[in-house]
Amino acid sequence: MRIEHELHARRRSRNVGLGLVLLAFVALIFALTVVKVRQGDLMEAYDHQPRVSLTPLDTPAGAPAEETPAGVPAEEAP
């Protein structure tokens, strides 16, 4: 019968502890994503190409949203 050295017990304690912390972190990020999406937070970043989904929400009702034609850089748009 092999008797486990105390060193291995300490290593296992570290490995199990770290594993649980990482799992908890993954679960936390997942839950946070769900909460943020449900709150309607902005999930898209600006990638140098203006899009309708990134225009401010407080545009007055009925006012035409200024859109850049597809494929035309913003600074060249009329």
């Binding site: 050295h5 060193l7 300490r10 290593r11 304690s13 570290r14 199990v16 502890g17 770290l18």
Partner: peptide
């Protein structure tokens, strides 16, 4: 010689929590 590991500074998980 397993005794060579006895003075190892390896800690447990709770040492890192401490």
């Amino acid at each position: 010689d397993i005794n060579a590991y006895d003075a190892s500074p390896e800690g447990e998980f709770r040492d890192y929590v401490a």
